[in-house]
Nucleic acid binder design. Structure first.
Lengths: 240, 240
DNA sequence: CACTTTGCCTTACGACGTACACGTAACTGA
DNA sequence: TCAGTTACGTGTACGTCGTAAGGCAAAGTG
């Protein structure tokens, strides 16, 4: 029985940061951030909880790593598209990623110590605006406006107690039944005449708001208040 | 020793839901949601942790109550203003409230079981759009777009590692020094030429994006795709 | 005044993040 | 090939968390 020498009872694949982060993401995707505990994560990895600490400094570091991994999933804006469709595509991708990983909306990492994927993503988005003719200042406006919208939308979407159109209709009917209509007539109207209509799906709102923001940015770009300086050495970050 | 009868060592004010929620908000404002523990809250209220459970069902209920209280702080859209300035004012107020209570951005309550202040707020905002000439469907678009933007902006603002312009400049200088400029040229440019400029304050971005969204909504309102039905009995929710 | 209700306190439990000490497996260079 | 070193998984333990259960005293009610 067993091989002649090296009678390894089980090869036991070693742990590493990537495996830890990947398993943590799966866990958080399934049960939310609160389901992510070091012990459960250890179970999933066939390892004791404390072993994880050989690969991440602490739970915060783990979550930062997860957040950066998520950023890596977002489709970067294409160099070949014009700025608007490049940003539009990556924004749609961004929302999809946040919908896939709802816990990521609440993670504060990005601002404090962004990882390489996050930095790369930001650099590419900023570069897309700059090369699209936005001044530095307008780029800051644009970046803030678009990403605020996306984050906020993802958060609202996540906090809804339903996802599919069927669930939506069911939940909305219940909520409407409980709602004092005399007290909240407009809310009742919106629920009855819009949310409860067949085929309603909150996610469809995303593109409406996104295009509204993008059109606004296009107008802002061409409104002269700050003539707009030259983008920096435009070839630096090329090569996809 | 002590008074003849009723030797009350201290009158000991009774607890109630409002006092609990108010103290919890102060705690969360100071140290974030993670500083809010039942024991610490008890200390602040001169009470044992378990006593709190006579006034809230559990910690989630407490947080929901906090969220609803926060909504009550937001200035409702005025009936006398036109829709745009009414929404603009309440949006600015909304952001101020979220900046004052950063923990509130992450609370998921609103969607699942909103409190009375939340419902009232939503009803008034929806009503403002309806009476401003938005169809039911366009009202849904508008509501989603504006609130997504506000939530997202508040979240980004909160996640920045600085608040005042001085802090901003200091932090930005440090981050810029650590940033591989060759790898992230656009990010470096934005930081150096914009964020590091004297007087830069991220909060100023808010109005830029907000007005962009509001202008977009005004355009959308007047674009005919759905003629727009009549608002429901317009006098229902009057009286400020 | 007795009786009921309300609300605060004490104790206790299981789950959490993680410090610390220990052992063993994997790698290193002679 | 093998001793020495480093890397990594384990076991135990501590302090903190949310909160269930039960007791007891104050407030409200007849």
């Amino acid at each position: 029985m067993a091989s002649p020498r090296k009678a390894a009872p089980a090869p036991r694949i070693r742990l590493n940061r990537e495996r830890v982060i990947a398993a943590a993401i799966v866990l958080a995707d399934t049960g939310g951030l609160e389901a992510l505990t070091m012990r459960r994560l250890g179970d999933d990895l066939n390892v004791e909880a404390m072993s994880i600490y050989n690969h991440v400094a602490n739970k915060d570091d783990l979550i930062n790593g997860m957040a950066d991994a998520i950023f890596g999933e977002i489709e970067l804006p294409s160099h070949s598209d014009d700025w608007k469709s490049a940003i539009r595509k990556r924004s749609i991708s961004f929302r999809e990623v946040l919908a896939r990983h709802p816990w990521a909306t609440t993670v504060r990492d990005s601002g404090t110590n962004p990882g390489p994927a996050t930095l790369r993503h930001h650099d590419r988005v900023i570069g897309t605006f700059r090369n699209g003719g936005f001044s530095v200042e307008k780029t800051a406006h644009a970046f803030s406006a678009v990403d605020s919208y996306i984050y906020g939308f993802a958060m609202q979407e996540k906090s809804l107690p339903f996802t599919t159109p069927e669930e939506t209709a069911a939940m909305a009917a219940i909520m409407l039944a409980q709602l004092p209509r005399a007290e909240y007539p407009y809310l009742a109207e919106l629920t009855a005449d819009h949310v409860l209509q067949p085929g309603y799906y909150y996610g469809d709102e995303f593109l409406v708001g996104l295009d509204l923001v993008l059109d606004g940015l296009a107008t802002m770009r061409d409104t002269d208040r700050h003539p707009g300086s030259q983008p920096p050495h435009s070839r630096a970050a090329s090569r996809p």
